[in-house]
Design a protein around this nucleic acid. Structure first.
Lengths: 218, 218
DNA sequence: GGATGTGAATGTCTTCACAGCT
DNA sequence: AGCTGTGAAGACATTCACATCC
């Protein structure tokens, strides 16, 4: 397999979501141009993105919606369920726990940890909060694939080190800090403060700019 | 001013956050290389990023931490407060309301709207939830600069159209959907489902890949 | 005819490397 | 000597354009 950029993978995600809508609308087939229009990109981009993984369309016709959907789900590793643990049951962690979309997409939150002993033992969304003291043991017991880190910035790196030490190779980080991980561990960060600062920049520089910032990721 | 990429602006955000830590550690001066090390980038990248906005360092010495901090805050438009409204007080919206970091960074949530009349009139974090029926009026009254959209995907575009119609030019979107906005309106999207799918891809393709995905933005 | 798949061209971002200032 | 600021080179991503196939 050729090297594939992160932006390509992000777009595949988007294509899949749009395809599900298209299917609901009852369309059975779709051209790259039509899909692109729904995703804010170009037909050439769609075709190039897909070309990294194989050939999915029929010339003169376009793509079969169910076939392309299946292909994308397979590429993205969404044909199976992933076992997810949440570390940190504060404001954000709690919101994530209640976010049914994750489960619907096959990301099953199976364990919840918090350092605050007052929270340990409480039930949240059907799961008992466990102490971070038993983090490694819990991750192993539950066969966790992905850990969501929703702890304060100061605590994040420590949690990540332990999580990586326990063999987890995928982390979704909500703490506003840079995380060091060894090669072979995937980290994605969601940083709302940084996005807001991007908006602040756009507002502060409105009119001065050459290029307009109406770009987005999904 | 030259055109500046989104990734440069994102890094400026990161530099600023690290500088605040450096200042707390008592360092008065810092080389591009030292700052880069804390941000997971290179000295050349730091210097290039800054060069778009002026010249802030002293050759042979590096950057004055307080001076660079001030410069970055000014570039990012963080010297003033921004008035923010939240639309949608569901799981995510509520979590954002309680997220004190926004306020600390100068993003003041001044108004909250929800379409659910059952929630209208309730108090959340010191604000009374208003009906989306009075969205435009409320945005104008409060002089809102930035709107956070935390409504279901189906409702997002409708809200955005109204918000843009009311003159708002910066939107932070949490709905997992693509938003159409006219040129001149800045949109940033936070899409957790998409980030998770990026992790899924990394896990599903571990070992097959040429390039390791340990990249992050925050 | 119509739309894909893809090398080649273009555009954008990052890295290099060094002249020039302190 | 040390480190910045920056053109130039290199890597990477997107767009073009067309031969190819249904």
């Amino acid at each position: 397999m050729r090297k594939v950029s992160e932006s390509t993978v992000a777009r595949l995600s988007l294509y899949l979501r749009r395809l599900e809508e298209v299917e609901a609308e009852g369309l059975g087939t779709l051209s790259s141009e039509a899909l692109a229009r729904r995703c804010g990109t170009t037909g050439a981009q769609v075709r190039k993105d897909l070309s990294f993984f194989g050939t999915f369309g029929k010339r003169g016709l376009g793509y079969s919606v169910p076939e392309l959907k299946t292909a994308l789900r397979s590429i993205l590793g969404l044909e199976r369920h992933w076992r997810v643990a949440l570390v940190g049951v504060g404001k954000i962690g709690s919101a994530l726990l209640g976010y049914e979309d994750f489960r619907r997409q096959g990301f099953m939150i199976e364990a919840v940890f918090d350092a605050d002993e007052a929270k340990v033992g409480e039930e949240r969304s059907g799961l008992v909060v466990r102490s971070t003291a038993e983090l490694e043991a819990g991750l192993e017991e539950e066969g966790i694939d992905i850990v969501i880190v929703a702890v304060p910035a100061e605590a994040a790196q420590g949690v990540v080190d332990r999580v990586v030490g326990a063999g987890v190779r995928a982390i979704l980080n909500f703490a506003p800090t840079k995380l060091e991980v060894p090669t072979g561990v995937a980290v994605k960060s969601v940083n709302m403060a940084m996005e807001l600062e991007g908006l602040s920049y756009a507002l502060a520089n409105a009119g001065k700019r050459t290029r307009r910032t109406s770009v987005q990721r999904g």
